[in-house]
Write a protein that binds this DNA or RNA. Sequence first.
DNA 1: CTAACTACCTGAACGC
DNA 2: TGCGTTCAGGTAGTTA
Length: 257
Amino acid sequence: MSAQPQARFHAVEKAAGRRVLDLRRRGKYLLAPIDGGLELIVHLGMTGSFRFRGGADGWQPDPYVRATFTLSQPADPGSDADPDLHNSELDFRDVRRFGTLAVVATGDYSALATLAALGPEPLSDDFDPLRFHTALAASRMAVKPYLLTQRPVAGVGNIYADEALWRARINPHARRVGRERSATLWTAIREVLAEAIEREGTTFRDYRMVNGESGRNADFLVAYGQAGRACPRCGTALRKVVLGGRGTTYCPWCQRR
DNA sequence: CTAACTACCTGAACGC
DNA sequence: TGCGTTCAGGTAGTTA
């Protein structure tokens, strides 16, 4: 692989020539164990995407490509790798350059504090409603910024936090969330994420699938980006505030404290 | 230790 | 048209 030296790129040159052993996801992080006892970690940040060159969408690199992975034929004949990918070039495009690439010792996430403290996978059995309530009860933060820390549950960002809190009728400023409401939020998070995944993501501008297609979830957003519109439940105008430095839209009636 | 605030980047949309 | 301001899907670093 080749990459520009960047502040948010850590030891990426160590990935060159390595074989990718696996490719997994935890929250918003992509994790690829590579040989040599190493692990390649990718975070797309706000505007990152992966694109294959020369595919059906005709993608060609532009000035926002920060790294390129050149994939080679698996040396192992028994590999399940796709031989069509031989010599393919996979670009990491990232307009705002908030994305992260890092190579670390396998499982050593000490250089990435958020990953090291990452909460359970929201759609797995590890995401337990009682433990979720315990985490919310232990935090002194407002519930929405706390969700964005990735500690109570992995993978909930600004869009899905607003959507889930609206669905659960919880005020984003709330610092105490009872057991019943925690369970409602637990369900809402799983529903909101599962529906967005079913629609292949939320595209405003930069987010793309690897084949260049947009996700279809943006048209289904009820809260995020809908300030001033009528709440679909009660008709009250949705209100936008800044909370924890992030734009936050909610229904001042349904989500009253 | 937690929580709050700032920095990091570029581009699009908006007001004048 | 042009220019300045604000905002954007996120996390890492610093400070209290």
